[in-house]
Design a binder for these strands. Structure first.
Lengths: 97, 97
DNA sequence: CAGATAATTAGACAGTTGTCTAATTAAAGA
DNA sequence: TCTTTAATTAGACAACTGTCTAATTATCTG
């Protein structure tokens, strides 16, 4: 799992987008109207999330629908567990980001 | 849990520091010699980790020892689980960063 | 106290990030 | 095809970040 994932999670707007998507797939416009921010700025955040593979996109007519990619979320959890778990029971698991 | 935590995790050097600390407490110098980076730069990373409350520090003579604060790590995991878990079984859990 | 060692703080600077407005692309419908 | 709607791309710019060298602080020891 890449550095891109952690960098993507480092912005509060993007974390809120992920939270909204956890309730189910939403269109770019639907997401954008929840924030006091221009659409291009939102579009930028979608791009960052896409590049980190945290979300998937699908076009339907004029609209683009985004949805969560839970696989990568699991990878982040595994990384954290590796650190956290290693504290309890030291083992040969290592290898960083 | 604050934005500081995610920003702290967004840098590969800091994630590697956390990984080293998962093996047990280490002094600033001991950590610094593992990286090809000046000591002041390392010191900066320690400060960021401290401000995010991801690590604790303790002085012993001239040396300062850093150790992992697993509590905050657990908070990050809980945040991720909230997103990830909500996907499987939708419930009233929400509230962002 | 003077010198050595461990670590931090101060200040500078290049590169990255998040935001905006303006322009562009893509699709649907009259 | 022209217009409208949905969304992105382009380009600019201020703010933030990670790094460095130089200076400073804190502690130990002779």
């Amino acid at each position: 799992m890449s550095n891109e994932v952690f960098k993507a999670l480092a912005d509060p707007t993007r974390r809120e987008i992920l939270r909204l998507l956890s309730q189910g797939e939403k269109s770019a416009g639907e997401l954008a109207e929840r924030f006091e921010m221009s659409k291009p700025s939102m579009s930028h955040h979608f791009t960052v999330l896409k590049q980190a593979d945290l979300v998937r996109q699908r076009r339907e007519g004029q609209q683009i629908f985004y949805s969560l990619n839970t696989t990568v979320m699991e990878d982040v959890m595994a990384w954290l567990w590796d650190l956290f778990g290693a504290k309890q029971k030291p083992s040969k698991r290592s290898k960083s980001s």
